[in-house]
Amino acid sequence: MDIILNQYYLQIVIFVLVNAILGVSIYMTLSTGQLSLGNAGFMSIGAYTCAILTVKAGFPVYLAIPIGGAAASFISLIIGYPALRLTGIYLAIATLGFGEVVRVIILNLKITNGALGISGIPTLGTKISKMLSSFGLSRFGGLTAQQTSNLLVLVVLIFILAFLVFFCTRLNRSRVGRAFASIKADESAAEAMGINTTYYKLLAFALGAFIAGMAGGLSAHLTFFIGPKDFAYHRTVEILSFAVLGGSDLIIGPIVGALLLTMLPELLRSASEYRLMIYGALMVIMMAFRPQGLISKETVRFWKRKLGRRINQ
């Protein structure tokens, strides 16, 4: 029990969950076959909107986070309308450029405090525990205040992620989801079948941006500090690699990717200076042998068959 409640492990699990939410955001746009590299940009819009609202305007967190998501989503519509006329590598470059533009704008705005970033952001944990204590629930038997707040954050994040997974699986079986899948399979054919591709692509783009914006808001309230450096190009690559490593066929893919890529650097801490070399080597090996990502539809089918057989025996 002590191990489970150790701050260090709790914190890692919290980062895993935030990254998993980011994984879902890139899965969203990938599910229409669009490679968007603007997620770090949307994340930073969400993070900054949310942080400014809570720090400077005194908004409650539970309101600020969805507002952050909505802001990101709104910007994505403006950007997406012209950008989504591009496909493939061109869209990737355009959205990548967008991410950089957002970063540079943030760097030069007064309200975002430029390169100095925003510090002293209240943590989600303390906010939630405060809220709970106002309902008369303050301490849970034998836990320190920090453990309680971290556990509460964990519960909230698990809830959000579970909701997103539920939402996505339901979406996949809906008319919208089918449209997404058909655009991914063949855009021209989908258009010929009477699917309004621009509308659906924009929808997926905006949904992805909303989720990324929320993840940004969440992470701002978990790291106490945000600066423009946190949302640079490498962040986009990190988010993309969740989907690349885990596989982007199924929603579970990017989540597993986020889990592995967040845990790995921590698990390798004992290797000290060789840590990143091993991390890189593992990535190369995985890509060499599973270019489609760790989890694809076949993987799920394979394990279902295997496990099903065992149960039948």
Binding site: Q7, Q11, F15, T223, F225, G227, E266
Partner: peptide, 10 residues
Amino acid sequence: NTEAINAVNK
């Protein structure tokens, strides 16, 4: 930043 948080926590 997140690595620093993890390192401090560890």
